[in-house]
């Protein structure tokens, strides 16, 4: 009798870790951005995307609100803002 003991690739996406945020989320101001990609690099969730200047944004379905993207942005174009996550849609 064989039953699966393996997981399929990338299936963790089903797990919406955005619900973990506790009161803060990164706000991408998109004004000063120089497209250095540092925020993309340091996000432990790998949930920031963007290509050209001022297009960078987090996927709030997964963002845990750690704040490292804001800490690393050389032009302070990301700020951590208060959120009442239960009022926001995390879909």
């Amino acid at each position: 009798m064989i039953i699966p003991v393996t997981s399929k690739p990338r299936t963790s996406k089903a797990n919406k870790t955005g619900t973990w945020r506790s009161g803060k989320k990164p706000h991408f101001i998109q004004k000063e951005c120089i497209a250095c990609r540092l925020c993309v690099m340091v996000c432990p969730e790998g949930c920031i995307s963007g290509d050209k200047r001022c297009t960078y944004i987090a996927d709030y379905k997964y963002c845990k609100g750690c704040g490292n993207c804001a800490a690393v942005c050389p032009v302070a174009d990301i700020e951590m803002v208060k959120e009442e996550w239960w009022r926001e849609t995390i879909s």
């Binding site: 963790s12 945020r21 432990p44 790998g46 379905k61 845990k64 609100g65």
Partner: peptide, 23 residues
């Protein structure tokens, strides 16, 4: 680029350096 080799939805603590390193 949002990588698909190490996907979001993992359950590391917020700000986990190891998740970042592995990615």
């Amino acid at each position: 680029m949002v990588t698909e080799l190490f996907s979001s939805g993992h359950t590391a603590c917020a700000g986990c350096g190891q998740a970042l390193g592995a990615r």
